[in-house]
């Protein structure tokens, strides 16, 4: 398996063969049924990794490898995201120039609500992620938006995730054809092959979790967003969900989309919904 993956990664020839083999399969009924999708998605991972406790899937690569998990648990005594967490807490409490705070923009003052993001906004007709909601809050209060891939956004979401740790992911899909379309679009984005490597998100995070790709162990797609944002040694800093999507696209030699583009918002909606019931574990730390 390991050899197969590196072979595919290393050679365009192999990728092209995979390309040719990916013949379209005709699927008869295309009714959108998110609940059934989530059930199938979770069952797939529960059966593929019968020894992994269900709530452990949210710990990304650590759920796949005992040695790595031990090292991580030792590290958690002095977590590398602590700095971001403190910064985020302070930013969250600091009033904008108009005297209001982030708390004024969110239900329950923004505390313990991470598990409800992203949500489908029936007024806008689109998916709203936590990162997007934070920047909209800033702009509504006369502040410039933050970069979606940099430290400030990661600090804010780290703090909000921390106040929600342990709460089960709880994403709703309202009875609205546009919400179902967004879910379906996110699903399509997740399974669609792209880039010169001809990989979809699923090629790595469904077909190969636990396998090594260069120095890294691939996280399973189930619960893959529950630990966001994450500290990565490789980044020597924190990364938002947006940053992770951009990095994963580039790895397959696909030009990444703009952070918070419709596709990224929708794939976040899809991945979060199918992780319903699994606990928020963010912020996370990765080797």
């Amino acid at each position: 398996m390991k050899a197969r993956l590196s072979l595919l990664l290393g050679s365009l020839g192999a990728a092209l063969v995979a390309f040719a083999l990916a013949a379209p399969r005709v699927v008869a009924a295309d009714k959108v049924d998110p609940a059934a999708d989530a059930k199938a998605f979770q069952n797939f991972f529960f059966q593929k990794f019968p020894n992994v406790k269900h709530e452990d899937f949210v710990n990304g690569p650590y759920s796949m490898n005992e040695d790595m998990k031990r090292q991580w648990q030792e590290k958690e005594e002095f977590p590398p995201y602590e700095f971001a967490l403190d910064a985020g807490k302070e930013m969250f409490a600091t009033p904008f120039k108009n005297g209001k705070t982030y708390a004024d923009c969110f239900p329950n003052g923004g505390i313990g609500i991470r598990q409800n993001y992203p949500y489908f906004d029936t007024k806008e007709g689109k998916v709203v992620t936590l990162e997007l909601a934070l920047n909209r809050c800033r702009e509504a209060n006369g502040e410039a938006p933050y970069s979606y891939v940099k430290d400030e956004m990661a600090s804010l979401t780290a703090y909000m995730a921390f106040t929600s740790r342990g709460k089960p992911m709880d994403i709703k899909i309202p009875d609205d054809p546009r919400a179902l379309a967004a879910f379906e679009n996110g699903k399509r984005y997740f399974y669609t092959r792209r880039g010169q490597m001809n990989f979809s998100c699923a090629s790595c995070h469904v077909q190969s979790p636990g396998e090594r790709i260069r120095a890294e162990i691939l996280a399973p797609a189930l619960g893959i967003l529950n630990a966001m944002p994450i500290y990565r040694s490789e980044w020597s800093g924190m990364g938002t969900t947006s940053r992770r999507f951009v990095t994963c696209n580039s790895q397959t030699r696909a030009v990444p989309l703009e952070p918070q583009s419709d596709e990224y918002r929708d794939v976040e909606y899809f991945l979060s919904y199918v992780a319903n019931g699994l606990p928020i574990s963010g912020p996370g730390a990765r080797p």
């Binding site: 999708d37 199938a40 669609t192 092959r193 792209r194 010169q196 699923a202 469904v206």
Partner: peptide, 19 residues
């Protein structure tokens, strides 16, 4: 090649779906 990929994937992605 990327156009061909995008065109093929309009349907082909379904083959990878967990059901």
């Amino acid at each position: 090649a990327s156009i061909f990929q995008a065109t093929t994937e309009k349907e082909a992605w379904k083959a990878m779906e967990i059901r």
